[in-house]
């Protein structure tokens, strides 16, 4: 049984493991590759970190880049709410 995979395949599996369940053979290939490949181990950890960061951004725990309603937009929305509310 050949479990050897290339770094390019490792990258694909490391990503897909976040979107679907890998089968036992894929998981074993990944584990074996990571034992010997420092760059790919970094990749896997960095993808984990990226996923965690994106999740907190999605949960609104992090302010995504100065996205603020400007005064004009605020006023337009306020007026439309008043029209509806009255």
């Amino acid at each position: 049984m050949n479990l050897a995979i290339k770094c390019s395949e490792l990258a694909r599996l490391a990503s897909e493991g976040r979107d679907r369940g890998l089968n036992w053979r894929e998981r074993l290939s990944v584990a074996v590759h990571l034992l010997f490949c420092q760059p790919c181990l970094r990749l896997r950890r960095q993808l984990d970190f990226l996923g965690k960061a994106a999740k907190s951004a999605g949960a609104g725990e992090a302010p995504i880049a100065g996205a603020r309603l400007d005064d004009g937009a605020r006023e337009r929305i306020r007026r439309s709410l008043q029209r509806r509310g009255s």
Partner: peptide
């Protein structure tokens, strides 16, 4: 051959970045 053209570098302790507002700007960019 399927090897990294440009290997991922060391990120040190990335968790600290989550506390810094500037990091979120970079992620957003």
């Amino acid at each position: 051959t399927g090897h990294w053209a440009d290997q991922p570098g060391a990120w040190g302790d990335p968790e600290g970045a989550l506390q810094q507002e500037q990091f979120w700007n970079v992620l957003s960019d």
